[in-house]
Structure formats: structure tokens, C-alpha cells
Nucleic acid binder design. Structure first.
Length: 713
DNA sequence: TATCCTCGAGTTCC
DNA sequence: CTCGAGGATA
């Protein structure tokens, strides 16, 4: 038998390598899992945070280099792995908002038009600042009387983490300021330069530690070290570009404020320019894009801001973003890979969601193996109204597809390579029966999603409903997350199949021969902790209860509206039980709540009238105590107990603000004028509502009078 | 009826 | 983070 001298040996070497890598992966995975378990059960951790982080990074790095060898049950894909840090929480005095995005030139034109329209500027040219968007992490640094006091990460925008000790090691951040306002919160981006990043990874490699995937991860990992001495050894940099709380204005333009920050000793980005109108904005965008490769730090787009701070103030904010700024993003990195299979998941509302199972690839430093396919139409390539998606190309199992991470997070399929389509590939046959329970899956007229009709008889829906029930905004039971729900759902001795079962768990366990505390992975302490966490939630605020029911169209915001309107579970339940869709006093009351429309109202009524659904609710209510919503007391305000309606444009405050203010003063805010309305506040452009108020003889006041009323109270 | 805005639901990976 | 739908308004 003749073989070429080296090929079998080489193949054998590769195989051995793969085995060694697999073995290393298994060992690291076991180490991480043991540490997670120890942490969960609040025992003394077996390994230090640093060792844990190093193990996790090493495993991630291995997986990144060898996506094909990744263990199917790798702990790196654990959701809800516990945070291991002990940073204090900091509430931002001024929230750190995110920015709206633009990807194409015409979105920049729309941004500019929106602004001119909002301000009534006609064809006048607006001046903007344009600056690179640094790909790091944002930080807010608070100076009081010229001294650095607190530095906090963005967090969720409202609450961040206190990383002051680490921030003090960043040389771009002055410890003291000369000539600054008494109170100054400087905001900007912490980042790591390319040379520093490469040097750091060399040091990591020499020390046998896993390298960081990219400068952004390196910066984030360094800033969130518990030991500031480690952070000190990491060369972090900082660009200032914004501010939070201030005791005195910095300037009257954005550019002026940036220059002032520079004068105070902060680094500001040298590519920041003033641009008059969209043409200059786009020109500067292309200039920055062209120079992107020469910069020694990562950027992911260009930020545009209205320069005049007075105009910024007038433009104000939408719920999560300022109207006066936008991030013009560079195109996301895309990668071609094979789509191996299309799976269908069933959500809590019965929605069938297609998911692409991909041959794992690294996109933007992360291994991606799944991507959302949204719905039937997205796979088909055009929707029911005949709109074309991806030039009308459909997606088939076996196709080569172009994948990117939308907003650098959610993997999506952007394109299909028809030239590489396997000859035997067939158009995807979207199921018309639920893959979990076999019930019919139907698509309502005009709806994009197909839904399983099985209701609570569908195990997938029942399980997802339970997961929602214990989720953060709902009952939020410590130690009973998605994974535990799945475990208990299929448990032979101690099943949780519906919400009420959670609250009978302890009693059932006590009657059992196979006690929870005797099981693998459980002990007396962990079982007792779970039972205690459940008991703590037996008394539950009304809005959490309503939200937990998981009624379609009724999310967190709507639940709060309903809770504060009805005040008690009894009142709410009675109203929902008596209400008839489309008629009667209870219906009128329901849809008159500002923010509740006919669709939501019907959905609520259906939930309380559908027999099985209703029994679930009743059995749950038997087990718990629903606390009344706190009624705003403010009994002595002139509008307490009155029903108000806002109409037209409010110029001095947003509608949400006005509403919150009115409610704080004990008034109810309704959406439309009726005989039960006491007062209408009409801004400019008020139409039918103001007329109706006049017809009904309801008092109408303008915004100034309303402000006087609110201030006086 | 069209348009703007916010909310709900579903998704991935850390 | 994104899409689609619901709700408010012009």
C-alpha cells in the first residue's frame, strides 16, 4: 500500500489537534459550570473572579477560532449567568439617553427635515456638529467644585455602575478642574487605542491569558475590573463629547461647549466639525469614512447634533432619544455562511417565529449560529401587500446567506446567493400547524405572524406564558427563572403547569416523599430559598399582577395605566367581567383611558370571558393577595378627582409630562371629551375635541393657564 | 386617511 | 435592536 509521505500524518495531526481542543473546551466548561453553581447557591466561590473571567475568556477565544468544535451545551451561551461584580449602583441625575440611527443618506435628509419642520424654520439652513462615533463605552464623570467625585457607566440610561476608582486611573480624565462650574458632569467615551490594544493582547498571551476579541471588549473588561490596580495597567483613553447635570451653562452652542471642555483639560475629538446643512454633513461623513482606516481607534459612524443649544432645548426628547441628534452608522460587517436549517419557535402568544440555524461564523468578534427570520413573508421575499424584500429572493434551507448583526447585536439575514443555491433546494414550506402541539396555525387578515390556536393546551405557549409570569416586570421571583420554569414544567413529582401551581409548590413539596431538598443540585438551603422567594411575592402590586397575566397587547405600560385607573383588583376584575365588547358603560370607561384602544379592550375582555383563561386567573387569585394601586393623595389640589383632556400641541411640556403632572395632582387624564370631562387643556392646533368641549359646555383653558394651575398646586 | 410616535413582542449573545 | 401594530392626532 502506497501513501504520499505526509498527508495521512497531517490529517492525523489535525484530528489530534481537534481532540485536544475539544478536551480543553470541556475542561474549561466544567470549571465555569462548577463556579456558576457555587455562586448560585451562595456558597464560598471555588475560584476567584479573575480566574473565572480568564477561564471564560479562554473558552470564548477557543470557540471563536474553532466555531465548528463549540460544545452544544457550552456555558458561554448561558443566559442569565449571574453578574459577579460588586459595583454600587448610581442613578444619573440627567439620564444618559441613546441616539436614533440613520443608515442611508435619505435618513439624514429626513432627520434635517424633521428638525426644520418641528421648529418651523422653513427653508432656513440648520447648523450641526459632526463628529466620529467612538466604539467604546460611555461614561459620566461628575465633578463638584472642580474635583472628580463619581464616575458611572451608562447602565440602562437611568442607573449605572459606580466605577470611580477605575476612572481615576484614566490619564485623559483630569482629577481636578480649574474654572469649571461648581457642578459639572462630563460625558464621553472610554476606549482603547489600536497600539495599546495590541500591546495588551501580547502581554495577555505571554501571561497565558486569552486575548481580547477587540478593543471595545478590552476597554469594557478593563473599566469593569474590581481591582483598580488592574485598570491602571490598562491604557484607557477618553473623549469628552457631552454633559449631564450642570450648575451653569458651558456655552450657548454645542461646538462652544466642546471647546470649553477642551479648555478645561479634556480630550475632544479632532475630527469634530461644524456643518451647515445636510450636504456638508454628508461630505464630512465621507471624509471621516475615508480616514477610518488611518485612525488608531475604532469608530462605528458619525454623530450629528444641532449646534444651537437653545434649539436643542426646544426640540427636546422623544421617549428614549433626543430629537436634536442622530448617529449616522457605517454599514455593518457582513459575512457569508450556509443556512443549514430553518426551525420554528412558538412564543407566548402562539406566534410561530422562524429561526435560521447557521454554520457558525464570526461576525464582528462574536460567533453567530442563529439568526431571526422574522416571519413567513420575510422568508418568502415579499409580503401580502406585494412589497418586495431582498429583491424578492426567498430563503431556502441549504442556501448561502449574507449575515450581519443589526445594530451590532441581533443577527439577521440580509441577502441570498442564488448562484450557490443547491439544485435540490425547495422553497420553505411554512407550517400551517403548530410544530409543538399540532393545532392549526392561522394568520389573521392583514397580520404578518401566524399563530398557533392551541392556547394553553399548547405546551410551548403554556411554558412561555409561565416564563413571562415570573419575568422581571411581572412576579420576578428570585431563583425561579426561565430555566427553572422549564424544569418544573416537566417535573413528574412537583409540576408547575400554571401560575397558581407556583404558590402551591411548598405545600405540595411538604406532602411529597421525594422532597425537593433531597434532589441532585438542590439542598435544604436552596429549596428553602426558593420557597421563601415565592412567599415574598404572594402579596403583589396590582400593575405587576395585570402585566403577569400576559394578555395580548397588554404590556408593562398598559398594565400601569389600568392599575392606576381601577385602583384595586376587585374593581378591575369586576369591570372586565361586566364589560361587553363595543357597548355599555364598562366598555366606554375602558376605551376612554388614554392609551387604551378598541383592540386592547377587546383583548382584555376576551381574557376574562374565555373559560379556561378565566379559571387560570381565578385559581391564581385564590393563592395570592393583590395590593391596591397607590392613589395619588394630593386631595387639596384644585384638579384633584377631576377628569382632564389634553388636545392640540403642548409647547412647554410633553404630553407624557403633562399627564404625569396632572395625575400627580390627583386628576385623571382621559383621551377624549365626554360629558364626564371637567376640563380641557387646548394647545395650538386643537380641533374636534375643543369644539366638542364647547358643545358640551366643558371649561377649556390654554397651556399657560394650565401651567399656572399646576404650579399653584 | 395618513402620519407620527410609543409600546409590545420576539430575537441573539454577553 | 427591530419590526409591526395600536393609539392619538391632524
Amino acid at each position: 500500500m502506497t501513501t504520499s509521505p505526509d498527508s495521512p500524518a497531517a490529517a492525523g495531526g489535525q484530528k489530534r489537534d481537534a481532540q485536544q481542543i475539544r478536551a480543553a473546551m470541556r475542561e474549561l466548561a466544567a470549571l465555569i459550570r462548577r463556579a456558576n453553581l457555587a455562586y448560585h447557591q451562595k456558597d464560598a466561590p471555588e475560584i476567584s473572579d479573575a480566574e473565572y473571567d480568564a477561564a471564560k475568556r479562554r473558552l470564548l477565544a477557543l470557540e471563536e477560532r474553532h466555531p465548528d468544535l463549540k460544545l452544544p451545551d457550552s456555558p458561554t451561551r448561558d443566559i442569565g449567568a449571574p453578574p459577579r461584580e460588586g459595583f454600587a449602583k448610581v442613578t444619573h441625575e440627567v439620564p444618559m439617553l441613546s441616539l436614533g440611527n440613520a443608515f442611508a443618506d435619505d435618513e439624514v435628509h429626513e432627520f434635517d427635515e424633521r428638525i426644520r419642520k418641528f421648529l418651523g424654520l422653513g427653508d432656513k439652513v440648520v447648523t450641526y456638529t459632526a463628529e466620529p462615533k467612538i466604539d467604546g463605552l460611555s461614561l459620566s464623570v461628575r465633578y463638584e467644585n472642580g474635583r472628580m467625585r463619581v464616575a458611572a457607566t451608562r447602565g440602562d440610561g437611568v442607573t449605572g455602575e459606580d466605577v470611580t476608582a477605575n476612572a481615576r486611573t484614566i490619564c485623559d480624565l483630569p482629577q481636578t478642574l480649574d474654572g469649571a462650574p461648581d457642578l459639572l458632569e462630563v460625558r464621553g467615551e472610554v476606549y482603547m487605542s489600536h497600539p495599546d490594544f495590541e500591546a495588551l493582547n501580547r502581554v495577555q498571551a505571554e501571561a497565558g491569558a486569552a486575548p481580547f476579541a477587540n478593543p471595545r471588549n478590552a476597554a469594557a473588561g478593563s473599566l469593569r475590573q474590581l481591582d483598580p490596580e488592574i485598570t491602571r495597567a490598562r491604557p484607557l483613553r477618553f473623549f469628552a463629547y457631552a454633559w449631564g447635570a450642570l450648575s451653569a451653562p458651558l456655552a450657548d452652542t454645542q461646538m462652544g461647549a466642546i471647546n470649553r471642555l477642551a479648555a478645561l483639560g479634556f480630550q475632544t475629538n479632532p475630527l469634530t466639525r461644524l456643518c451647515r446643512g445636510t450636504q456638508e454633513l454628508l461630505a464630512h461623513y465621507r471624509h471621516i469614512e475615508a480616514r477610518r482606516a488611518e485612525l488608531d481607534y475604532d469608530i462605528d459612524g458619525v454623530v450629528y447634533k444641532v449646534d444651537d443649544l437653545d434649539l436643542q432645548r426646544r426640540l427636546g426628547f422623544r421617549s428614549t432619544t433626543p430629537r436634536w441628534a442622530i448617529a449616522h452608522k457605517f454599514p455593518a460587517e457582513t459575512v457569508w455562511t450556509r443556512l443549514e436549517k430553518i426551525d420554528i419557535q412558538v412564543g407566548r402568544t402562539g406566534a410561530l417565529s422562524p429561526v435560521a440555524r447557521l454554520k457558525p461564523v464570526t461576525v464582528g468578534g462574536v460567533v453567530v449560529s442563529n439568526a431571526t427570520l422574522h416571519n413567513e413573508d420575510y422568508i418568502r421575499g415579499f409580503d401580502s401587500r406585494g412589497n418586495v424584500i431582498r429583491d424578492g429572493k426567498d430563503i431556502r434551507e441549504g442556501d448561502w446567506v449574507k449575515v450581519y448583526r443589526a445594530g451590532d447585536v441581533i443577527p439577521k439575514v440580509a441577502d441570498v446567493d442564488l448562484s450557490r443555491r443547491p439544485p435540490d433546494a425547495r422553497p420553505f414550506d411554512f407550517p400551517t400547524r403548530c410544530p409543538e402541539c399540532g393545532s392549526d396555525a392561522i394568520r389573521e387578515e392583514g397580520d404578518a405572524v401566524r399563530r398557533c390556536t392551541g392556547g394553553m393546551a399548547c405546551p410551548a405557549q403554556a411554558m412561555e406564558r409561565l416564563k413571562h409570569f415570573v419575568s422581571r416586570g411581572a412576579f420576578d421571583i428570585e431563583g425561579l427563572g426561565a430555566r427553572q420554569v422549564e424544569m418544573f414544567y416537566n417535573d413528574a413529582d412537583l409540576p408547575i403547569r400554571e401560575p397558581a401551581d407556583i404558590f402551591t409548590l411548598r405545600a405540595r413539596d411538604a406532602r411529597n416523599l421525594t422532597r425537593l431538598k433531597n434532589r441532585d443540585g438542590w439542598g435544604e438551603k436552596s429549596a428553602e430559598n426558593l420557597f421563601r422567594a415565592i412567599e415574598e411575592r404572594r402579596r403583589i402590586p396590582l400593575y405587576r399582577m395585570i402585566y403577569a397575566l400576559g394578555i395580548r397587547h397588554v404590556g408593562e405600560a398598559a398594565s400601569k395605566l389600568l392599575a392606576s385607573h381601577y385602583g384595586s383588583w376587585e374593581a378591575f376584575e369586576t369591570a372586565m367581567t361586566r364589560a361587553q365588547p363595543g357597548e355599555g358603560a364598562e366598555w366606554e370607561e375602558l376605551i376612554n383611558i388614554d392609551g387604551v384602544g378598541a383592540v386592547m379592550a377587546r383583548s382584555l375582555i376576551a381574557a376574562f370571558h374565555q373559560e379556561n383563561e378565566r379559571r387560570l386567573i381565578d385559581r391564581l387569585v385564590d393563592q395570592i393577595e393583590v395590593l391596591d394601586a397607590k392613589q395619588p393623595p394630593a386631595a387639596d389640589s384644585p384638579i384633584a378627582g377631576k377628569t382632564l383632556v389634553f388636545t392640540g400641541t403642548l409647547e412647554r411640556m410633553t404630553r407624557a409630562e403633562a399627564k404625569a403632572r396632572a395625575e400627580a395632582l390627583g386628576a385623571r387624564v382621559a383621551g377624549s371629551v365626554s360629558a364626564r370631562t371637567d376640563l380641557v387643556i387646548a394647545g395650538p392646533g386643537a380641533g374636534s375635541k375643543a369644539r366638542k368641549a364647547a358643545e358640551l359646555g366643558v371649561e377649556v383653558i390654554d397651556e399657560d393657564a394650565w401651567l399656572a394651575l399646576a404650579e399653584g398646586a
